[in-house]
Design a protein around this nucleic acid. Structure first.
Length: 762
DNA sequence: GTTTCGCATCTTTTT
DNA sequence: GATGCGAAAC
């Protein structure tokens, strides 16, 4: 049985067999990261460690599942008892078991992003705040940022920098929204994604009934996959589990700083850097040999990533001898791009006898998938799209799930609001509004307020509410007696949802009906087998358990199916995957890198890491394409090639085609670093002044003005460019561009998009 | 009370 | 191009 160790190289083996104490494995792309992680767990099991003492945390359900399967191949059945799951799902399970200790029902609801947004919108409306200044998605990310850094509403108030940022952005009441948001979720017995971490941390910190010791003792061996993508809060929880008197500190973290692509949601490389400080006994292993990709792909990846400043030193190498170059495809339009990608796939399929499943088309934004679909269909190539709207985010599915949620947890406000009058049953918005006001006035939940005799509503509405409440109550009573599957089927019919969906006989209507029925099937499957990943409470097959599992599933977790399909997905979704032939598309300034990342150099570095991830997905063939014109935001826009293309290095690619089909002179000068200017600059992109002009008191007092208040003739202050005078403002309402002359600037004038710029009127 | 239509708005990545 | 919102029609 020990022969599995022979499948490892020296460094891998050393890492795997270091079973005691803290271990960090820095693993370059294709260096056998998953293999090391799984073999290490297999090795523990072989040494006689009981499976339930082993915890492995990943970021996707898919990764967890794959890990278990691979462990099982080495050690057999026992693998199923290892705790392997995503941070969110493992923590949700612990919380389900311990919720009552921190004032939540064990069948708490999990609010997804949509639910969160809707709560925020209603708070903003109630507080009568300007919805332009208080954009729900901005507020959401502020709150998420706070939670990920363990900042409660009270803590937020004391955080001078965050409060200052809010003030500068003219939304000083964010903290009040945050506070109200937290209390509403508490009242509804609901947690959002961040709460699954935040509340678990709280549970461990407050430690009622010594709950933390229970888990510290239980998890003797901790494993973390994709360590570079953990945030402060996740690391804090890990530390809680590891730090106690006499702890062996058995933790095995695997990651690659160069593949950190989730900084935007709070992930920080600091965790890797702090790891050494927090655990002085740490042993570090570096896996640098790439077993995945051919020469030019590996070298191109190295060349690209060398443009990033902050990174751990390592050089990835391969001994693969095949030397086909990267294809660079220049296209006139986005339509041509997708056509040629589809054509090239067909050509490669025939020439190299590759199945569809060995092809992936990657893009920066999900919206880009549409064009590729068109052309793949034209060539009869079967494909599947990952990401975008997941199955569980579809309206009809969410509606159905909302009924189930309300049955399990009647205080779930979002579920209630969603379906109280859907299908319509004579309860108007005005009535719901009144219930809401009465609820907050009396400090009770919506559910409790529904049949409050004090409500000032018509007799008809009162009756409708009564009927509604009775139905739900009836289901609640039966929730314990009947199987989840049977109850769900009953709910689907009696709610009127089924009837409503059936009336629509269009193609889409039919598929909606099928989707809802698919949920029923999934519930049956769950009741029959339990959650395949269930590790804490494998016997919990209730509707509540199902709902908590389901809310954490994403599109990528769906079964791959039997069909041989080409994969279309965002670069983010491609992390951890590999294909014989990969197409990276839409390599244009403002798209990849995204214009959203332009504000600070860290954003650009993250985009570059993202590109690095994309490049290293390819085993044999890599093709990169860009278009000179692209349909975006409802109109055709002229695009410049991405700056990252110049960083690939001439030696590693060849141009293919041009619209004329003949080989063209590469229009890509090699320009490391400075490459931001030169041919690769967008016409609108301007060189930055050497030093920040604004500092000290000016910066401290800086207050950004609202975009629409700036007009020609204004004297303004910009944080980077200093003082200037606005000579003109033009463009549509939403995309106003100001031409400004800055004092002592190297350029005569700059054109600045007001929406993104931070300008103070002087 | 309910449905439908036109208008405006906002478009990065995700557990 | 999709979604939310308000007004008007049913």
């Amino acid at each position: 049985m020990a022969h599995y160790l022979d499948e490892l190289n020296d460094i891998q083996r050393a890492a795997v067999t270091t079973t005691e104490g803290p271990v960090l494995v820095i693993a370059g792309p294709g260096s056998g990261k998953t293999r090391v992680l799984t073999y290490r767990i297999a090795h523990l099991l072989e040494k006689g460690v009981p499976p339930w003492e082993i915890l492995a945390l990943t970021f996707t359900n898919k990764a967890a599942k794959e890990m278990k399967e691979r462990i099982e191949k080495v050690v057999g059945q026992r693998a199923q008892q290892v705790w392997a799951g995503t941070f969110h799902s493992v923590f949700a399970r612990i919380l389900r078991a311990e919720a009552s200790k921190i004032g939540f029902p064990s069948s708490f609801s999990v609010y997804d992003t949509d639910d969160t947004m809707s709560v925020l919108r209603s708070i903003i409306k109630e507080k009568d705040l300007d919805p332009n200044a208080y954009n729900a998605s901005v507020i959401r990310s502020r709150i998420s940022l706070a939670k990920s850094n363990l900042i409660s509403p009270l803590g937020y108030r004391e955080k001078a920098d965050m409060m200052e940022e809010d003030r500068a952005a003219r939304r000083p009441f964010v903290v009040d929204i945050y506070q109200e948001y937290v209390s509403r979720l508490q009242r509804a017995g609901a947690m959002d994604f961040d709460d699954l971490l935040f509340q678990l941390y709280r549970l461990f910190r407050e430690n009622p009934e010594g709950v933390v010791e229970k888990y510290q003792k239980r998890f003797k061996y901790l494993h973390v996959d994709e360590f570079q993508d953990t945030n402060f809060l996740q690391y804090a929880i890990l530390r809680r589990l590891l730090k106690y008197e006499g702890s062996p500190e058995n933790v095995f973290a695997v990651g690659d700083d160069a593949q950190s692509i989730y900084a935007f949601r709070g992930a920080t490389i600091d965790n890797i850097l702090d790891f050494e400080k927090d655990y002085p006994a740490l042993k570090t292993f570096k896996l640098e040999q790439n077993y995945r990709s051919t020469h030019h792909i590996v070298q191109a990846a190295n060349a690209v990533i060398s443009h990033n400043r902050r990174q751990l030193q390592k050089t990835i190498w391969t001994d693969k001898t095949e030397r086909s170059k990267i294809k660079l495809i220049k296209c006139v339009t986005d339509d041509e791009e997708s056509r040629r990608v589809a054509d090239l796939i067909l050509e490669q399929k025939n020439r190299f006898h590759l199945p569809n499943s060995e092809f992936a088309i990657l893009y920066r934004t999900n919206a880009q998938s549409r064009k590729f679909e068109e052309h793949l269909r034209r060539l009869n190539l079967d494909y599947r799209i990952y990401g975008g709207l997941s199955f569980y985010q579809r309206k009809e599915v969410k509606d159905f799930i909302a009924y189930l949620r309300l049955t399990v947890n009647p205080n779930d406000e979002e579920a209630l609001r969603r379906i109280i009058n859907y299908p319509t049953r004579g309860i108007s918005d005005a009535t719901v509004e009144k219930i809401g006001r009465s609820a907050s006035a009396n400090g009770i939940t919506l559910w409790q307020a529904i049949n409050d005799p004090r409500l000032d509503i018509t007799e008809r509405a009162r009756k409708a509410l009564f009927t509604f409440k009775s139905i739900i109550e009836d289901w609640q009573k039966r929730a314990n007696a009947e199987t989840a599957a049977k109850l769900a089927a009953e709910i689907l019919r009696r709610s009127g949802l089924y009837e409503l969906l059936k009336q629509d006989s269009t193609q889409e209507g039919l598929s909606r009906l099928q989707n809802v029925e698919a949920v029923l099937d999934a519930i049956s499957e769950f009741t029959d087998q339990g959650d395949p990943n269930a590790d804490l409470a494998p016997d919990d097959r209730s509707l509540g358990a199902y709902l908590q599992t389901v809310s954490l599933l994403t599109d990528a977790d769906e079964q791959k199916g039997e069909r041989d399909q080409i994969t279309l997905m965002s670069v983010h979704a491609a992390k951890g995957l590999e294909y014989q032939s990969v197409f990276i598309t839409g390599m244009e300034e403002t798209l990849f890198p995204s214009f959203m990342s332009f504000e600070d150099p860290q954003g650009l570095d993250e985009e570059r890491r993202l590109f690095y991830v994309a490049v290293t997905r390819a085993k044999r063939f890599l093709s990169i394409s860009y278009a000179q014109n692209r349909y975006r935001f409802g109109q055709i826009r002229v695009c410049e090639p991405s700056r990252f293309l110049a960083e690939v290095g001439e030696d590693h690619y060849e141009m293919v085609g041009g619209s004329s089909g003949r080989l063209q002179q590469p229009a890509l000068p090699q320009q490391p670093r400075a490459g931001i200017s030169g041919n690769f600059s967008t016409g609108r992109r301007n060189p930055q002044p050497a030093r920040p002009v604004v500092s000290g008191a000016d910066a401290a007092n800086f207050q950004a003005a609202a975009p629409d208040t700036i007009k020609a003739g204004d004297a303004v202050l910009h944080l980077k460019f200093g003082k200037g005078k606005v000579s003109s403002v033009e463009g549509p309402k939403d995309g106003k561009v100001a031409t400004i002359r800055f004092e002592g600037d190297e350029l005569p004038e700059r054109r600045i998009v007001l929406k993104f710029a931070k300008l103070q009127v002087l």
